[in-house]
Amino acid sequence: MIAIAYFSGSGAIARSTTLIADAAQQAGQEVAMIDVMEMTAEDWATLERADAILFGTPTYMGGPAAGFKAFMDATGDDIWLDRKWRDKIAAAFTAGVNTAGDKLAALQSLNVFAMQHGMIWVGQEVIGAPVFKENEGLNLSGTFLGLAVNANTKGLTEGCEASAALFGKRLAEATTRWMVRNT
């Protein structure tokens, strides 16, 4: 099971979460979407049971949004000390207005967070245009550490929506492969 822990400001992360979840479900994974601003004891239990946890936050001022950072900080005692997320698959996605927009810095923060928990990281693998012209609009920022989508007042571009779906499929396949090898 994949749990997607997310915070959405303008709606781009919520939209990305839905696209990722739909693709992961189509690839055979059960998915739980958890808004970190409304955490319950059941949500924490779901994260503990999950085979994979995907972290989603907008990039604000070069890092994860404060709402998501509070969630990260809340894992510092029982979860981190007891290694409850050790060897779970981890991945992350972020959104920002500009193509680069310091989204890589937010993904690096999420990567370090996952590594501190002893998790196994899965990044983005799609090579977009101009390298592969047929992938026009995919992985616009050329970011491979995770999914980085562009958000504007009209929502996500068609390419960013397709990139989110491909990322969900990749995460589902990696989780399935990891769980088969480790059972």
Rank of each mutant, 00 (worst) to 15 (best):
M1K: 01
I2P: 00
Y6S: 04
Y6T: 01
F7W: 09
S8Y: 07
S10Y: 11
G11P: 08
G11R: 08
A12S: 07
A12W: 08
I13F: 11
I13L: 08
S16R: 06
T18A: 06
T18P: 05
L19E: 01
L19F: 02
I20L: 03
A21C: 02
A24H: 00
A24M: 00
Q25A: 05
Q25G: 03
Q25T: 09
Q29S: 10
Q29R: 10
E30R: 03
M37W: 09
M37Q: 15
E38T: 15
T40R: 12
A41T: 13
A41P: 15
E42P: 08
E42T: 12
D43K: 07
D43W: 10
D43E: 13
W44M: 14
T46Y: 07
E48A: 13
E48Q: 14
D51A: 02
I53M: 02
L54K: 00
L54P: 02
F55V: 01
G56V: 01
P58C: 04
P58M: 03
Y60T: 06
G63L: 03
P64E: 09
P64H: 07
P64Q: 09
A66S: 10
A66K: 07
G67V: 02
F68T: 00
M72H: 06
D73T: 09
A74L: 13
A74C: 08
A74Q: 11
T75G: 12
D77W: 13
D77S: 14
D78C: 15
I79V: 15
D82E: 15
D82Y: 14
R83K: 15
R83W: 13
K84F: 11
W85L: 13
W85R: 13
D87P: 12
I89V: 11
A90T: 10
A91W: 07
A95T: 11
A95G: 08
G96H: 11
V97K: 11
V97D: 15
V97Y: 14
T99N: 12
T99M: 13
D102W: 15
D102K: 14
K103T: 06
K103C: 05
A106N: 09
A106T: 11
A106F: 06
Q108K: 14
S109Y: 11
L110P: 09
L110Q: 06
A114I: 11
A114G: 12
H117V: 05
H117Q: 10
M119S: 11
V122P: 13
I127A: 08
E134K: 05
E134P: 05
G137N: 00
L138F: 03
L138K: 01
N139K: 02
L140E: 05
G142K: 10
T143W: 07
A151I: 08
K154M: 06
G155A: 03
L156Q: 00
T157G: 00
E158Q: 04
E161T: 01
E161Y: 03
E161D: 07
A162M: 04
S163F: 01
A165H: 05
A165I: 02
L166S: 08
F167S: 05
F167I: 04
K169Y: 07
R170Y: 04
R170C: 03
R170L: 06
L171P: 05
L171H: 04
A172P: 03
A172K: 05
A172I: 07
E173C: 09
T176D: 13
V180G: 11
R181V: 13
N182R: 15
T183P: 06
